[in-house]
Write a protein that binds this DNA or RNA. Structure first.
Length: 597
RNA sequence: GGUCCGGUAGCUCAGCUGGAUAGAGCAACAGCCUUCUAAGCUGUGGGUCUUGAGUUCGAAUCUCAACCGGAUCACCA
């Protein structure tokens, strides 16, 4: 039982005892005390006045007195207007600290055999161009969310559905055939996904040129688009692909292979991974049967032209097409098919889709459809919706070349970390491999933290310059704090000091120390909140606060030169536990933490 | 136009199941390296929480309306 749960219970007893009335738990408002007031937890007594029928101050006094007498965990109280501030005894906090320090998981739960299985879909790239900044946000959020769900006792299957077919893929292929000279990643030295992306760009350039020529001859834009031979060739290629034309399939497999090699490299750099990868080329036909089955059951209906629809007006939405007049699938149908395949392969209890907020409507519809079709988890599937990433100059537009490439970004971040570290002399005396490892951790830490600390739902502005600034609320600041803590512990060990002798310093803890312990104590709850809110940002902001508090503490106290043995032991214990919490928290964000930097 | 999301310091963001004087960082200014890492610490200045009404003992937080910004409303994915 946590201290606030305990006090909640006690408060109920106090009210019953003092005023002879039972109240609902919702009337008990217990919150952590604001920093500028004395105390740890505050009971707001305003709502209780109609029960006590007394002034706020009087009610607070009565309750405070009763609670202090009956609760050994409390050491004092004070009343300010309708706020009863309760101080928890240092002995209690110290005990909590020792407990936290001795556990490796900080109250986080591991999944057991009967834990719910959560499948998280994230990343979902197209194989016609490299990953960009928007994908980076998706990948980091998705991966971190998986870690957080795991830490809350769920079995997690990380999945990725690769959009490896379609007109856009054919565009790259066609351009490579027409305009290329047979270059490969090996022959050109280019990363596979970049090479293919270059041909996608080339296609669009040639296409625009063709349109301009046709329009110069007097056609309207629409006429030109219809008359484009390049587009006609692309459609032809798509048909050939669908018919299984060996030559087209061969080219498709070769070029996709290049892209996958490139993606793997990028995923590696980002530190994300998947348990199961689905390919759209293998799933895009699946939804049709499900739709037809349910058409027979009368859940969907057919229009005169042969197209199949779902009527969602009862749910406040519109009609939604599921099969075209010619019997082919649309995007929604494919998602139903993929869902059905996944369900047959895994005993899914909850499905989470990490997809941008431009698809909010799509997932609203998908949820209703899956429910209608009979998937238990359909109704409460989670669309983990996140906002777009904008640049200080405005939106990213691939046509205008304002897209930030994921690989370039990663290289830039690590490069800057390397340079800055070198300038500051942080890498002196380290081997080349060690120095590079630290530069990688710090550069990636800066990028990951910068993106994850923002509420996922919000559109965010990514300022490359600012993200590379390692001051303030940044990943490197937190990493730095951890490195300092490790340094303190190393020196302590060199001097033969330890915190094993359980220190008894109950009476002499400072406010800062107590506050730090309380912060550490609230870590498991924060991780739960993050899982419930589907927000790594909650953990990011928590870790920052912890690191900041420790840094201040660090400057105010001499840890190693303390004369009092027990006090010195206690401070080492506090440092060690803080370090562990920081490491665990950063791990949940998918950020590595160096022991020295 | 319908629906959904957002609007907090010059900038980037916390805070939102209602609670005390709305917080950080960046930027600006002033200090701190004979003390365990100065990628740090301390201090100063900076706010009609978009606006207006309502609910309440109490509203950045809840409700309604307006304004601004974004997304979406395809037999595209």
């Amino acid at each position: 039982m946590t201290i606030s749960q305990l006090l909640e219970k006690k408060a109920l007893q106090a009210i019953e005892n003092l005023y002879g009335q039972t109240v609902d738990v919702s009337q008990i408002q217990l919150q952590s005390t604001k920093k500028e007031f004395e105390g740890d937890l505050t009971l707001v007594t305003f709502p209780l006045l109609r029960i006590s029928k007394k002034k706020p101050e009087e009610t607070g006094e009565e309750l405070g007195k009763w609670l202090l007498e009956k609760t050994p965990e409390l050491s004092s109280y004070n009343v300010i207007k309708g706020f009863l501030n309760l101080t928890v005894s240092p002995a209690y906090w110290l005990n909590e600290l020792v407990l936290a320090s001795n556990t490796t998981d900080f109250g986080l739960t591991k999944a057991g055999a009967d834990s719910p299985l959560v499948m998280v879909e994230y990343s979902s790239p197209n194989t016609n161009k490299p990953l960009h900044l928007g994908h980076v946000r998706n990948n980091l959020l998705g991966y971190s969310l998986c870690r957080i769900l795991e830490a809350n006792g769920n079995k997690v299957v990380k999945t990725n559905i690769v959009n490896d077919r379609g007109v856009h893929i054919c565009k790259s292929m066609l351009a490579w055939k027409k305009y290329g000279n047979g270059e490969t990643p090996a022959s050109s030295g280019k990363k596979g996904d970049h090479l293919v992306g270059d041909y996608y760009v080339a296609f669009n350039q040639h296409y625009l040129e063709e349109l301009a020529e046709l329009q110069a001859k007097g056609m309207t834009k629409e006429q030109a688009e219809a008359a484009s031979t390049l587009m006609a060739e692309t459609r032809e290629m798509l048909l050939a692909w669908e018919a299984g034309d060996p030559e087209v399939r061969q080219l498709w497999e070769t070029m996709n292979g290049w892209v996958y090699a490139g993606f793997d490299e990028t995923y590696n750099k980002l530190g994300v991974s998947f348990d199961k990868i689905y390919y759209e080329s293998q799933t895009y036909l699946l939804g049709k049967d499900v739709v037809l089955d349910n058409l027979e059951k009368g859940i969907f209906y057919r229009q005169e032209d042969g197209s199949v629809w779902a009527d969602l007006t009862a749910d406040g939405l519109d009609q939604k097409v599921l099969l075209r007049g010619d019997g082919t699938s649309v995007y929604m149908t494919q998602d139903i098919g993929t869902a059905s395949l996944r369900f047959s392969e895994y005993p899914i209890d909850k499905m989470v889709y990490v997809v941008g907020n431009e698809q909010n409507y799509h997932f609203q519809v998908l949820s209703i459809l899956l429910d209608k079709v009979g998937f238990a988890w359909g109704k409460d599937l989670v669309h983990f919706s996140y906002g777009m990433v904008e640049l200080p100059e405005g939106k990213m537009k691939s046509r205008e070349g304002t897209v930030v490439d994921a690989d370039d970004l990663v290289d830039e971040m690590v490069g800057t970390a390397r340079e800055t570290s070198r300038e500051l002399g942080k890498l002196d005396g380290l081997s080349e491999a060690e120095a590079e490892d630290i530069a990688e951790m710090v550069g990636m830490g800066a990028l990951k933290y910068f993106i994850l600390k923002v509420d996922p739902r919000k559109n965010m502005t990514f300022n490359p310059k600012e993200s590379i600034d390692f001051n303030g609320n940044t990943g490197p600041f937190i990493q730095y704090t951890h490195a300092r803590i490790k340094s303190v512990l190393r020196k302590a060990e060199e001097q033969g000091l330890s915190f094993d002798t359980k220190p008894n310093v109950a009476g002499s803890l400072s406010d800062k120390e107590l506050f730090l312990i309380q912060l550490i104590d609230s870590f498991p709850q924060t991780v739960k909140d993050a899982a419930e809110g589907f927000s790594p940002a909650i953990i990011a902001n928590y870790i920052y606060e912890l690191a900041k508090e420790f840094n201040q503490f660090y400057h105010d106290y001499t840890i190693l030169k303390e004369s009092d043995e027990s006090l010195r032991g206690f401070r080492l214990l506090l440092a060690s536990t803080t370090g562990k919490v920081i490491r665990t928290g950063m791990d949940l964000l998918g950020v590595r933490v160096p022991d020295r930097m």
